[in-house]
Measured scan of single mutants.
Amino acid sequence: MDETGKELVLALYDYQEKSPREVTMKKGDILTLLNSTNKDSWKVEVKITVNGKTYERQGFVPAAYVKKL
Score class of each variant (00 low, 15 high):
25 M>F: 13
57 R>L: 08
14 D>P: 04
34 L>H: 02
11 A>L: 05
14 D>F: 06
65 Y>T: 06
3 E>A: 14
39 K>V: 10
68 K>A: 08
20 P>N: 09
2 D>V: 14
33 L>S: 03
6 K>A: 11
50 V>K: 09
4 T>H: 14
40 D>Y: 15
19 S>K: 05
31 L>T: 01
2 D>S: 14
46 V>N: 04
59 G>A: 03
39 K>L: 09
26 K>G: 03
50 V>T: 08
5 G>D: 12
56 E>Y: 15
67 K>V: 14
42 W>I: 02
9 V>W: 04
49 T>L: 11
3 E>H: 14
24 T>W: 04
22 E>K: 04
68 K>E: 04
47 K>M: 10
57 R>S: 04
38 N>L: 09
30 I>H: 02
50 V>S: 08
69 L>P: 01
35 N>M: 08
49 T>D: 08
68 K>T: 06
65 Y>A: 11
32 T>L: 14
1 M>W: 13
50 V>G: 04
24 T>F: 04
8 L>P: 03
28 G>I: 04
34 L>R: 02
48 I>R: 08
9 V>C: 13
42 W>D: 00
6 K>L: 12
10 L>M: 14
53 K>R: 13
57 R>Y: 06
57 R>N: 03
68 K>V: 11
2 D>I: 14
37 T>S: 14
13 Y>F: 12
42 W>V: 04
6 K>R: 14
54 T>I: 12
54 T>P: 07
21 R>P: 04
57 R>M: 07
48 I>V: 13
42 W>Q: 00
1 M>Q: 12
20 P>K: 09
43 K>T: 06
10 L>T: 05
23 V>R: 01
14 D>I: 06
43 K>W: 15
10 L>A: 05
6 K>Y: 14
16 Q>S: 11
66 V>W: 03
44 V>R: 00
64 A>H: 11
25 M>R: 00
38 N>D: 14
20 P>V: 09
39 K>M: 10
33 L>H: 00
38 N>Q: 09
27 K>Q: 08
52 G>F: 04
13 Y>N: 07
66 V>R: 02
46 V>L: 12
16 Q>T: 14
36 S>F: 05
60 F>R: 02
50 V>A: 10
36 S>D: 15
47 K>G: 04
42 W>T: 00
7 E>D: 10
63 A>N: 02
17 E>C: 13
62 P>F: 10
61 V>P: 00
27 K>L: 04
51 N>A: 10
41 S>C: 15
13 Y>D: 06
53 K>P: 01
2 D>C: 15
41 S>H: 15
6 K>T: 12
8 L>Y: 15
9 V>H: 03
43 K>H: 10
